[in-house]
Design a protein around this nucleic acid. Structure first.
Length: 280
DNA sequence: CGGATTGTTCTTCC
DNA sequence: CGGAAGAACAATCC
């Protein structure tokens, strides 16, 4: 990004850590450099570090959107806004931001604005020191789409686990980035019941699950994620992977693969969807 | 009004 | 101590 942040407006004090005053102090006049991601956590590296008490030095902003968070970048032009990505103007529309769900607004020196919106307010933006970032990052397991995501490493992550495959897939410490929706979809893709203990899986089933993780995530990203009601991407657009979901949120519907009715149960405190006909 | 929703963290148990 | 399981938490909607 590298644009200078000229203004930071915090509308919901609880959306950020530290006192609002400090949060603004650390970021005003600063700029975001590299932007990384680990699992579902985004890391905005700051161009200039910021010293706080006890020789601690803030170097990054950690952002988590949880279920209903949005980060939307827009630029006002007259009475319209243009939505910009990669330096290209995409669409013009009436501006509807900020809205009542807007938690934080960053204004940049080119008059572009980044809105952090969150209807249910589970998400956050946190200032973090090098040590805090390091600690947070080290807690994540293998990252799909990296060279570390090999079948051997996947098997090692599952090894000795006395949990169900769904719980294992959701465990960010083992494999980073899979949430409730895609855990169900991966299990369907592999033809394996989400409630199967990891130890009961055959080699062929484990291989299938491994392949399905990449397949499902790749498709989901291609279709810009799954929008139920609230999610919008950084361009303010809805994801349309909903149309491709095979079992999630399809309770009572006919399975596209075998025609049985999709079931929904509660497993480990989470809504869990599967087809009793073709998942075993 | 209560249950459902999500990802993460805390608590408790063995 | 560590893994597993379950509760708690954030806030809102239907």
């Amino acid at each position: 990004m590298n644009k200078k942040i000229v203004q930071v407006e915090i509308r919901q004090a609880k959306a950020v850590n530290f006192e609002n005053k400090f949060f603004v102090q650390a970021l005003r006049g600063n700029s975001f450099g590299e932007i990384d991601r680990r699992g579902k956590l985004m890391i905005f590296r700051l161009k200039k570090s910021f010293k706080i008490s006890g020789s601690r030095v803030i170097t990054s902003v950690l952002a988590h959107l949880k279920m209903t968070g949005q980060l939307i970048y827009e630029k006002k032009i007259g009475k319209k806004v243009e939505v910009v990505a990669g330096g290209h103007k995409l669409i013009e529309k009436d501006f509807d931001l900020p809205n009542k769900h807007t938690q934080v607004i960053f204004t940049f020196d080119d008059r572009g604005e980044l809105f952090f919106n969150d209807l249910r307010r589970f998400g956050y933006m946190k200032l973090a020191t090098v040590e805090e970032v390091q600690k947070v990052l080290s807690a994540f397991g293998i990252e799909p789409f990296t060279k570390n995501f090999t079948y051997e490493n996947f098997l090692a992550a599952l090894l000795k686990r006395k949990v169900t495959i769904k719980v294992a897939l959701l465990d960010q410490k083992k494999i980073a980035g899979i949430g409730n929706i895609y855990a169900d979809e991966v299990c369907f893709c592999a033809g394996v019941l989400p409630t199967r203990p990891v130890v009961s899986l055959s080699a062929a089933e484990k291989k299938k699950i491994f392949v399905c993780i990449t397949e499902i995530l790749k498709m989901a990203i291609k279709h810009r994620g799954t929008t139920f009601k609230d999610y919008l991407d950084s361009e303010g657009k809805k994801g349309n992977y909903t149309d491709f979901l095979k079992v999630f949120d399809r309770e009572g519907e006919k399975c596209g693969r075998c025609g049985n009715l999709v079931k929904k149960i509660k497993s480990n405190g989470r809504g869990t969807h599967f087809c009793p006909g073709c998942q075993h």
